[in-house]
Design a protein around this nucleic acid. Sequence first.
DNA 1: TTCAAGCGTATCGCATTGTAATACGAGGCC
DNA 2: GGCCTCGTATTACAATGCGATACGCTTGAA
Lengths: 264, 264
Amino acid sequence: MTAPRKPPKSDPLYVASLEKGLNVLGAFSTGQQHMNLREIAEACGTDKSTAQRFTHTLSQLGYLEKCAKTKRFSLGKRVLELSFNYLRANALVEAASPVLIELQRATGERVNLSLFDDLTILYAIRQSSKREYYFSTLIGRRMPTWSSSGGRAMLAALPKAEVNDILKRSDLKPLTPRTIHDPAGIRKKIAQAQQKGYALTVEEGVMGEVVVGSAIIDADGRPAAAIHIAGSLGEWTADKFERKFGPLLAETAQRLSHHRFPNR
Amino acid sequence: MTAPRKPPKSDPLYVASLEKGLNVLGAFSTGQQHMNLREIAEACGTDKSTAQRFTHTLSQLGYLEKCAKTKRFSLGKRVLELSFNYLRANALVEAASPVLIELQRATGERVNLSLFDDLTILYAIRQSSKREYYFSTLIGRRMPTWSSSGGRAMLAALPKAEVNDILKRSDLKPLTPRTIHDPAGIRKKIAQAQQKGYALTVEEGVMGEVVVGSAIIDADGRPAAAIHIAGSLGEWTADKFERKFGPLLAETAQRLSHHRFPNR
DNA sequence: TTCAAGCGTATCGCATTGTAATACGAGGCC
DNA sequence: GGCCTCGTATTACAATGCGATACGCTTGAA
């Protein structure tokens, strides 16, 4: 008999311990506020010993906090530091920041900047002066690329083959009853975005909400980010909202495009 | 500038590989936008091989991004996800969020929430409608506890022994020519904060800026966070600013205090 | 053009380091 | 009171991370 076969040839440069540690931090992506050892072990698919060693290490480093009474863990303040370092180094976000503030003041509506990250976009700037759902004010939140206005606007700037690839790998589960989630419908919306310079979604992410999104193109001609303006159907018809903000948004995104930022 | 670092030795539960990997992410706390392998190795005090393995692993996981052309690394979008998970799970920040928005609207000035973290505070909410220095709008930024208005307001809620301990371990380097940085002066400011319910700093963090800060006390009677209102000396005298916003701020902080939040 | 310096990448034998089974004491709940 | 399940601590073992080394490439000065 041949020698025992190792699990699929692994990458000799890959540090599995690091992945396991980061998975512990990732265990909190379910929204759990705090977890005990067993829950963390389960969430990470490891045993209790492993969870013990990694929570212990992460706690010492400040990436995890341990309640002295309940012995349960929650994410540590230090994770905010990483975001800070990411954002301060991102020239595109920095350049967009004053523009978004201005756009918020000019429109009075909620204005966001999202970054393109393959199947999802994630928010990097959120400018709002209204009271919103807490979630809707947070940086780092991910949304599917295919269903969001900004995501579709970015897809409109990609070659067809890449769009197909992304749609194929995406889970096209609708977020609301009004989410357009059939490939043909999505492609049509992408084509419209290509023509108009912005995409419009009506109650596709949240009921009662209308959003326009437009892509920021980088110096290589690829979509890097998108800006969004979101409003309420209680105050606007979709048509009026689009006419009022669509062109302004597209022009603003255009102004931020084609710059060579040092870190891209 | 660097966060609490405790590298314990001969702890059988400590996973050194995890620490090394996180140190690679921490290498970007200098503000560098992108680094090559050698720079990362140097910043982490390791050799090139080590840097190679960890950057490789972190890139695969999305916590680091590698430029295809220059082969240099920068922080990955995924670090924002950790912040998102931290903030969404933090009930105190969630409860404070609408209050801060309201406070911003009522005052028209820049309003922040900071979290107490031993020698430093770090910002968790920033509400502003004005154009500011980019840095000043970012979450996750740390400031010394002893020199900031919110920090001093929180120190005012701690037992004297703990205050002494914190001052002793802090680096009392002044941030501006007007930073009060002698222990006696700091203690006096803390005593004033204790009496008034808020602390006032005039050009101690940035020239031209006046800030009032007040502490949010948790259910155990300990300071957990602080809210700040910051204004410009171009628009206000320090006196007027204090009279106008100090009492309002203290009252607001009081309203957010003494709640039992599930994750603390 | 040549050459050297510095880069990123790949390889590999070795021992350090992380692993996972186990045990123990402390609470909490029937 | 007894039975879980929790967090914590210990240990023998070998898988895994380590780091020296080598190679091919680009760059820039000679």
